[in-house]
């Protein structure tokens, strides 16, 4: 029954995709009338004016271009012309670095705050104020103090991914079941051992959920951050291709951003499943 449900769902998915591509294809067929013009003028006007081609690329154009990109993902023809693989690599590296730093800060700090009601109360107002700040609002400050656009982007990733992880760690640690703590207490388990053998495994699913939210936000923010700092990365690529008026490449970039975001989320989801325990 479940396999048949999955099969049917898959079929519906494929049908929806086919319908979407079909409508897209029909909507972007050449329709406009072609005005007669001198060949020299026609050269300036481009295909929309000369052949009545739609300004929006169709699925076939995008597919062909995507194939081109996939064939040569890592070419490097100078600052403004790099393969998509390289651009995505830069973005993933920045996200990875900023995210890793955030993990290193948020989880130990969250543990401390979660285990200490005093710290929890004392730091709460700061966290409440800092959390809703758009990570990009930090960008000018980061650029001014760090004086390096690439590191500033990493900093922005760090600052945006730290909050969900921190708050979830605090919550997970603070809400470990009292009876499990009591078990450790009656067994005279020391604070450090208790933290690693009871609190960490008990809070791990909540912490991982925070990490999963964080990686999603980090991937959202990196595109915007790279549009601002420029140079490399998938966000810069999108903006550069917009300046080139290559809507085809913009669409391809959008598709790839979605796929990479999904993969990052799936990786964290798998980790979450590994630490989740049935009760």
């Amino acid at each position: 029954m479940t396999s048949s449900l999955r099969l049917r769902a898959g079929l519906v998915s494929i049908a929806l995709l086919a319908a979407f591509l079909g409508i897209w294809h029909l909507a972007t067929r050449s329709t406009a009338p072609v005005a007669a013009m001198s060949p020299e003028y026609a050269k300036l006007m481009g295909l929309t004016a000369t052949q009545g081609k739609s300004a929006m690329p169709g699925p076939l154009d995008v597919g062909a271009k995507l194939w081109e990109h996939l064939k040569r993902p890592f070419y490097d023809n100078g600052p403004n012309d790099k393969g998509l693989g390289i651009q995505l690599g830069y973005s993933i590296a920045r996200v990875g670095l900023g995210y890793l730093l955030a993990v290193l800060v948020a989880i130990p700090l969250g543990f401390l705050i979660g285990m200490s009601p005093l710290l929890s109360k004392a730091l709460d107002p700061f966290i409440q104020v800092l959390k809703p700040i758009s990570p990009l609002a930090w960008m000018p400050l980061a650029l001014y103090t760090i004086k390096d656009s690439s590191i500033s982007a990493i900093f922005v990733i760090f600052i945006c991914s730290i909050w969900p992880m921190l708050l979830n760690t605090v919550f997970g640690v603070a809400s470990v079941r009292k009876e499990w703590i009591n078990v450790a207490r009656t067994l005279e388990v020391g604070t450090l051992r208790r933290a690693f053998t009871v609190i960490l495994p008990a809070a791990a699913p909540t912490i991982l959920t925070g990490m999963r939210i964080s990686i999603g936000i980090a991937w959202l923010v990196i595109v915007a951050a790279e549009m601002l700092v420029g140079g490399t990365g998938i966000g810069y690529f999108v903006w550069n291709e917009w300046n080139n008026l290559s809507i085809t490449n913009v669409i391809i970039a959008i598709l790839l951003i979605g796929i990479v975001g999904m993969l990052l989320d799936q990786i964290l989801a798998r980790f979450t499943r590994m630490v989740t325990f049935p009760e």
Binding site: R177, W180, N182, V183, P201, F277, P278, E279
Partner: peptide, 9 residues
């Protein structure tokens, strides 16, 4: 403990 309080992991 009343609720057995086993560590589920």
């Amino acid at each position: 403990f009343q609720s057995h309080a086993l560590l589920p992991w």
